[in-house]
Write a protein that binds this DNA or RNA. Structure first.
Lengths: 247, 247
DNA sequence: TACGCTATGTTCGATATCGCACAGAGTTGA
DNA sequence: TCAACTCTGTGCGATATCGAACATAGCGTA
């Protein structure tokens, strides 16, 4: 297992310089993150931050009437628990494991120690937070203007970016609750995408056949978010000189 | 004018301890922020951060087809330009002055110097950023699930919170572009609110008559955001000991 | 005062999504 | 093999919003 799971499968951990990473490495704890697990309820305080490697966590808001909406997703590109270092300790959204897998967790206090050194790790985490903010912003715009079919395409692509394969294990019911639409709406949209030869699916599994085609089918939101993540973070992999933008 | 305009009309500036504030005060520049002014285009880099006092800035995303959606608003409770200290320098959203007024601006480099001291001001700005993040998150959820009438109520209330009066100068057309809906939809929703005795309006002006009633008419999103802002920031006014949440 | 511009009000059909009901198909386990 | 359960497919009317066209009303200005 120690061969299969490595901290640097998480891009943020991988982007940390050796000195900083070494300080944290001994305290990183590999944990299973089974699907459906609620890591943090609305308003709840996390005891750890989570760096997913193969798992994907969905940040959702659940409304008073029970309807839910995904705000953003967190996979191997990021970290769950930004409210700890942002100073609020809690958020009104909940964190639900959407795709089961693993991740590394770190005691909140240890992350805070590192963050408060005000060095590379702080800058890295703040950049990630800005990227997350862009993701949430685009979710807002997308929810306003785009069709279920476009949103499903976007969601499939961004989920796929966090997985090693082209297949995701996920019922339409679950996808519907992520997107905040009816299950039937997902059935219909998925049917169209399958007819177009972009995906194929069977009970609980979706395989993306044509990523480029799906991209063309999705709204611009996917590309905007991806570009912004790349700009802010992707080049961090194997590049440990995160610039300090101090004037 | 120097009597009418004071930096502490902005809550973030007011929340800074004397030592920190004094370092910045000499560099704060009072500027007029006329309605319609675009302070920052999508992807553009700000040379200053803006602390509005009487103005309100709308953060929007404009889609490829020209449709727009408000992501969040920034008034006297906050600051425009978080991407500077978050490390990304730019964001995909644009900043448009929605309500004309004034604000204080500060050279980006000077804010960065203060931010990089990793002291009270940094913690204050990060807490504000988290509050903004909550606002954006709720915009996303609200866009998904709530009616135009509910959203208009929410928007009126949150705009009013940033103004000294109960009247806002704003055409329905402009409100429509903020909410990302048709102008006719705003006309219809505003008509209902007026019939219910909650607001009254005439060509370009809206007066809120019954704030409590409007609150009851709005979706939960308004209250969630307000509560979170209060929790994270409101008690900062006249309270300069922002706790360091280091573990 | 009269004109012209802009804001607001109203109507219409078109469309997307919803909410519900139920049928069929796949999976699991006794 | 069969039963129970879950997931997916489909059809229906109801509703909200859209998109466009046009009517009316308020306001500034010549």
């Amino acid at each position: 297992m120690s061969d299969l799971h490595r901290p640097d499968q998480n891009h943020l951990l991988a982007a940390m310089p050796a000195a900083e990473f070494d300080r944290l490495a001994a305290h990183l704890e590999l944990v299973a993150m089974p699907v459906g697990n609620v890591l943090c309820e609305s308003g709840g305080k996390l005891q750890h931050v989570y760096f997913p490697t193969t798992a994907i966590v969905s940040l959702q808001y659940v409304m008073e009437n029970g309807a839910s909406a995904e705000i953003a997703g967190v996979g191997n590109e990021g970290v769950l628990g930004i409210s700890l270092f942002m100073g609020g300790e809690t958020t009104p959204s909940r964190a639900l494991v959407q795709t089961g897998g693993h991740g590394y967790r770190l005691k909140a206090s240890l992350l805070m120690q590192e963050f408060n050194r005000a060095g590379v790790v702080q800058r890295l985490l703040l950049r990630y937070t800005q990227a997350l903010l862009t993701q949430i912003s685009m979710t807002a715009a997308c929810n306003r203007h785009h069709s279920v079919e476009q949103q499903l395409s976007r969601w499939l692509l961004s989920t796929l970016d966090r997985l090693p394969t082209n297949e995701l294990t996920m019922t339409q019911e679950l996808i519907a609750s992520m997107l905040g639409v009816r299950r039937e709406g997902v059935t219909e949209a998925a049917g169209k995408l399958q007819q177009a030869g972009l995906i194929s699916y069977r009970r609980g599994h979706i395989t993306v056949l044509d990523r480029f085609g799906l991209n063309a089918h999705a709204c611009e939101c996917y590309a905007v978010v991806k570009k912004e993540f790349d700009r802010l973070l992707c080049d961090l992999r194997n590049r440990h000189d995160i610039p300090n933008v101090a004037g």
